[in-house]
Design a protein around this nucleic acid. Structure first.
Ligand SMILES: [Mn+2]
Ligand SMILES: [Mn+2]
Ligand SMILES: [Zn+2]
Ligand SMILES: [Zn+2]
Lengths: 141, 141
DNA sequence: CTATACTTGCAACAATGTTGCATAAATAAT
DNA sequence: ATTATTTATGCAACATTGTTGCAAGTATAG
């Protein structure tokens, strides 16, 4: 388990309470979280605006990336070590939305499929969102 | 070129002005449109709420489906004939977002790739969003 | 043509997200 | 350790998206 402070320093951003709290929430839950969920994990006294600004900073600095699911909710997930440079998110991994518990996971990188896209179109990057049942919901222990 | 009225009747929804205008806009542009873009295509006097309710009706009746892109904007696209049943959108096609012109296209169905997802997860459905350059922007005529 | 079922517009509300500006806090410099 | 500088925060205000309840209007079936 990594310390939020270490992570922030490694990315050369100032260490503040709200930043530590938000990173801690993401590290603890181990899933992607929406603004609302993040809000519910941190001290209530922080202003909404500060939360949004913090999340924007994290995305810009390559600390987190956003995931916009089919349900229209934007979620934030920690970038795995070294996978995201500032302003250059590496999107080679797949996102998984569990239909039962509603949690969103970044799946570990696996072999990527090839696509057939029509002639005339040029592909730069792609994103794959899978939905179904997560480990926990499929095999409740 | 199909008539909006025909399309609405085939789906057993009442034919009203706003419905004809919205379907006409989608048929004409041949791309997915956001609420904002749709609003700019139709008569200004229609109420916002009616636009949203119309779009919801269309999605529920299988006339359109939504696309939530990486930019967080929800777009609406006509379902190709027979591809969508009410409440049961067929998501076998790929969505393409052009980085230059910003337009979103539903690509015609092609062979689908296989995914490797980690053991323990069960996949129900998936969605693929590709971004890059569209026909028009790649080969300006 | 009339009855009825559905659609519309309006008012009100809630959530998300942004900007400008003064104050406060974190870090760098002394 | 103290001060100076840079950056972050809180507050007010605003814009946009999206929803609901309700009364009035309209499309369609009979
Ligand atoms: Mn991810
Ligand atoms: Mn589509
Ligand atoms: Zn689950
Ligand atoms: Zn284009």
């Amino acid at each position: 388990m990594k310390k939020p402070e270490t992570l922030l320093k490694r990315h050369h951003v100032r260490v503040t309470n709200i930043r530590k709290e938000i990173v801690a929430a993401l590290l603890e839950k181990e899933t992607a979280l929406s603004y609302r969920e993040i809000r519910d994990c941190i001290c209530e006294s922080h202003d909404r605006v500060t939360v949004y600004r913090t999340l924007n900073t994290f995305v810009n600095e390559g600390i987190m990336h956003t995931i916009s699911s089919a349900d229209g909710v934007v979620r934030y997930a920690l970038c795995s070590d070294g996978s995201c440079e500032p302003h250059h998110h590496d999107d080679r991994h797949i996102h998984f939305l569990c239909k039962k518990c509603g949690r969103t996971f970044c799946l570990p990188f696996r072999a990527q499929p090839d696509f057939e896209i029509p002639t005339g179109y040029k592909m730069d990057s792609f994103e794959i969102s899978v939905s179904g049942l997560c480990e926990n919901c499929l095999n409740p222990s």
